[in-house]
Design a protein around this nucleic acid. Structure first.
Lengths: 353, 353
DNA sequence: TTGTAAGCGTTATCAG
DNA sequence: CTGATAACGCTTACAA
């Protein structure tokens, strides 16, 4: 099916056209466009009328080139690692909407970038600043960017964050809270379902810190270590991991799962082994609100507000770009526990000390 | 916390530097950069060495300005309407990755755009082409863009699509398939849970077509009309709508739900009324694979492959931008039914047909 | 308050 | 094969 005659895109008006029509110089128009002072009100009016009339809009590309500012925020999300979970997805919309609201363009880069690529991003005028995701404890990127004076904000944080802006959640505390809640319900055999090994190998922050939180909870409440690696944060893998776990530790009564999908899989496995949730076993997930409600029973969960995090990160970057004396903002979100229907007090029949 | 001395961003090398260092003219470097013919192999080598050495990268902004091409694809997703569902979210990553893979930048615009804004997008050099979402049957945007020769692709389609490129799913057929499956299981009282009224008011394609499909199924299988409007595609609203529906039509035995969240809510409501799924009632959802598995019981569903759709749309746009004799591509995806655990043959006790 | 003119870093045209 | 030189559309000293 070939197109009907598509007209060639009409050349659009330039600042010069406006100037000519208004009988002023280009610079005057530019001044008006950029809200500079020192313009006669009459002139401003006249020019703006013309602009209205001919429907002129500045060419952002030219503005960028001349002004040495792109007004672009880029979100770097390397798709190699990536399973996308709801976690990541919601970052996008949060960040994108914050960018829009602040008159920034939002650019999502999924191609993994090496050191050179990162710098080129800046050198070649593709963004004023970036949001970094998938931060590793020993991440090389913040140091590089900082060294070159390239503004950025991290979603997540390194081991050492001096001088880096970030927004992150306190995963250690999140994990501890989850365990604490389960303990308070009488559970003593608490399993951790996540991918500490995988993510620790990758030195990814959340994994390390969740694991750390688990250790702390164990120490604090004197629990024995029970955990099972899930391959991916999917229902299937959560299911498989749980079956395996139940074989090895049949006395487990409670589960802390990373991501709602794992939790959903766990619940399915439990049911298959004749255990009802929450009557016989309790499950807490680290998950977004949306996902937590989707699962049956609705998950008691430590809320992970991805969209808000994305939003905050973008806002922070905008501020950073706007301020001439750049400052560092570090925001560590306090986790909140929402109790729904997947947890209950340990029933006497299940008590095992 | 104020930043340590951030060094001013180093001015980066320009094409001119390269030219000087290599002892050639700027135009020669440009030619080499753009892989033009008519360059001596020796020269090319020398220049490329220099480029390597000093780590030069072209300034994309300048390229855009001079070359009159942005290499940007924009995805327009007006956030006003929008609840984001997994549907939409997955479009993004699909489109973004396709763009990346084809060396296009990907720009997500969430600000609603009026006619002028749309055209400015193009005029002001913000994108070579756009992907339109939230298409209405009588959408004004495609006609406008086409008239101005602005390349675009729709995710979704209008009532009349002559000359427009799109990728969409056959929602009519999807709905019919769902009903058909339920009928084949013996169900006669099939309810439709969605938001036809809301979306029809907005003239949004999917809603109208789902509704149409429901009518066709009714006619074909001689079913009585049972439907309930859900306010939003959330668990809560699905739950509430189902309760209401059950009050008005206590004999209903099967449900077709738009989106997994509604289905999850429906299942919860059914359970609360003492009905087990799928033993007593069957539920089919129009949902992504991921969501369908998350719900318990795993949903029998008509698969809505958002990410693939996003990917295809971006690819299509890239092709469209690349081809000098622009052609129209229209892709209507055939829905597929995946049977999981939320449907079963109508049990004799429930028969009322 | 306004205009002139010099960039910004490329590409493209046209001679050589 | 290569090099001037003029765009591209705008911002920004600096001058008037």
């Amino acid at each position: 099916m070939s197109a009907k005659n598509i007209p060639a895109p009409a050349k659009s008006a330039t600042i010069e056209d406006v100037a000519r029509l208004a009988g002023v110089s280009v610079s005057t128009v530019s001044r008006i466009l950029n809200g500079k002072p020192d313009v006669a009100e009459r002139t401003r009016q006249r020019v703006q009328d013309i602009i209205q009339q001919i429907g002129y809009t500045p060419h952002v590309g030219a503005q960028r080139l001349a002004g040495n500012k792109t007004n672009i925020i880029a979100l770097l999300f390397p798709m190699d690692h990536a399973e996308f979970t709801q976690f990541e997805l919601d970052f996008f919309i949060g960040a994108a909407s914050a960018a829009s609201r602040n008159h920034y363009f939002f650019n999502l880069l999924t191609e993994p970038l090496d050191a050179n690529g990162m710098l080129n991003l800046y050198r070649s005028g593709q963004a004023d600043g970036v949001i970094l995701m998938q931060i590793r404890l020993d991440d090389w990127r913040p140091a590089l960017l900082r060294e070159h004076g390239f503004p950025f904000v991290m979603i997540g944080r390194c081991a050492e964050n001096d001088g880096y802006s970030y927004v992150d959640m306190d995963f250690e505390r999140a994990m501890f809270m989850a365990c604490e809640e389960l303990v308070s319900l009488g559970h003593r055999q608490i399993a951790f379902l996540g991918r500490p090994a995988w993510m620790r190998a990758a030195q990814l922050g959340p994994a390390c810190r969740l694991w750390e939180g688990y250790q702390q909870a164990r120490a604090h409440f004197d629990l024995q270590p029970i955990y099972q690696e899930v391959a991916h944060l999917t229902v299937q893998d959560g299911y498989a991991a749980t079956l395996k776990l139940l074989d090895e530790h049949p006395t487990v009564t409670a589960f802390v799962c990373v991501h709602g999908a794992s939790a959903s899989g766990a619940i399915r496995a439990l049911r298959e082994r004749g255990r009802k949730v929450p009557r016989d076993s309790s499950v807490i997930a680290l998950a977004t609100n949306k996902i937590a409600q989707l699962v049956t029973p609705a998950l008691t969960h430590v809320n992970f507000p991805s969209d808000s995090i994305g939003h905050q990160a973008a806002q922070m970057l905008v501020r950073l770009l706007g301020s001439h004396a750049p400052s560092v903002e570090q925001r560590l979100l306090e986790p909140t526990l929402t109790i729904r229907d997947s947890t209950a007090a340990l029933s006497p029949s299940n008590k095992q000390g």
